[in-house]
Design a protein around this nucleic acid. Structure first.
Lengths: 115, 115
DNA sequence: ACTATATATTCTTATATAGGAATATATAAG
DNA sequence: CTTATATATTCCTATATAAGAATATATAGT
């Protein structure tokens, strides 16, 4: 972002739609750069550059095998985003399970007035 | 982003750290622009512009009262992000509740081999 | 009507960065 | 050693956009 020190963090890395597409591909199985190029019909440098950004924030890792580099997602690195979103879920009833919400409230001691 | 049609979507809107800070503020209570300016010590135009972006993607709404504009978060608009993240949680054991995961698997019929 | 206040917008500028073309690097194959 | 293949990097350019300054707009108060 202009006039901001702003290098990449996980949030801005997935702010770019194409990088989300790469993550969606790589969650299925590890893939080489050219496999991604073939699958997505983007230029090879474009794919490599997006992968480089994802690597910078550890959202993907690389396994080298001869000339090939297999990329895979490191899904755990998405956790900060999940946690950031999670703090707002209670404001929209967005927890994916009602019981889960109930247990969270128990943990937080927010449930004392309910039997 | 350069050379991309890319106007704002919810993902890129929260890719900007300052906009996440605004959302964190406004989730507590609705606030006017100047209240945010006072709280965050940013310039007024900076706050207004970030609010404008958040409004474009409906992450905040505005209530006018005289000269004031009260902004509040529309947390439900974060749901696409939650859902996008959610599809990856199973790859890191990231569901916030084990029981929740269990129930999800039941729903998905992925649990037939367990008692 | 005039002034003050709250906020948005416009204009400008600096910078980040996505994408393409060309090139570099690394490794494999012959 | 030469060539082919896989990938990264460099160089360039167009564009998006964050931030500041100045200004516009809207409303309230006098």
């Amino acid at each position: 972002m202009p006039r901001t020190k702003a290098s990449y963090d996980v949030f801005s890395a997935i702010g770019e739609p194409k990088r989300r597409i790469i993550i969606e591909q790589l969650i299925q199985k590890e893939m080489t750069v050219n496999e991604l190029v073939a699958e997505l019909s983007w230029s090879q440098p474009a794919v490599s550059k997006h992968l480089a950004v994802l690597r910078q924030v550890d959202l993907v890792s690389e396994r080298r095998a001869g000339r090939f580099r297999f990329y895979r997602v490191q899904p755990r690195e998405l956790k900060p985003i999940q946690e950031w979103i999670h703090q707002f879920e209670k404001y929209w009833g967005g927890s994916l399970d009602q019981l889960d919400t109930y247990l969270q409230e128990l943990r937080l001691g927010m449930n004392n007035d309910k039997h």
